[in-house]
Nucleic acid binder design. Sequence first.
DNA 1: CCACTATTTGGTTATATTGCCAAATAGAGC
DNA 2: GCTCTATTTGGCAATATAACCAAATAGTGG
Lengths: 107, 107
Amino acid sequence: MDEETRNLFRDRAAVMKALAHPTRLFIVDQLGKRETCVCELATMTGADMSTVSKHLLILKSAGIVEDDKRGLQVFYRIKFPCVLKFFDCIEGVLVASAKERLKRYSK
Amino acid sequence: MDEETRNLFRDRAAVMKALAHPTRLFIVDQLGKRETCVCELATMTGADMSTVSKHLLILKSAGIVEDDKRGLQVFYRIKFPCVLKFFDCIEGVLVASAKERLKRYSK
DNA sequence: CCACTATTTGGTTATATTGCCAAATAGAGC
DNA sequence: GCTCTATTTGGCAATATAACCAAATAGTGG
């Protein structure tokens, strides 16, 4: 594997990494419905606002979301809706795993 | 956010996490082309075979790949090709980020 | 059974991530 | 300017990940 290939997969992994957290996935899912401010996301997730803010920074740095300050509040929205479509694929993986587990135990 | 929702996003994140590593992304990409044995993946990635084996276990536990032992070798193949389609989305995110960075510096 | 090869497992150390608290920043309205 | 609210930033302790080496396991062929 050459340097360039290595860099390509490092960069791709960085984007995936940004998505690889329950709270961040929830946030992305929510932003897929409508743009939402930090305070509301904090209430929804039950996490500290500073924690949510950091999660949002991670998503923003990865280029997945963008923000928009209006008055005191900062609204975040999703930049790449294609990310949302991936959830169905994930869901398929989860369902299949659950079925296999079920089959294993019922034998 | 109720317990059930929390669990759902935890499970989804677990799958994303399995994908959120350069070597594992490379492996998934390669398995998308053809099933491949551990030894060849080790050569391709330049990583220790034990390291590759652990990465494969992570992907397998997540339900993304499956294995098939034939003789001394263990071949891995992808179970959910839809994962591969997500790469295009990621690529879009990366290209957009690169463009923005370029624009910022050329001003 | 022995030697050889492919793979997995265990263990250790280094590094990265997370979440909380406290403090800093920034805009709104009196 | 002061105060209140929303957000971000800094710092720290707890936890999770990763990579390497060595050792164990498993199948092959003499």
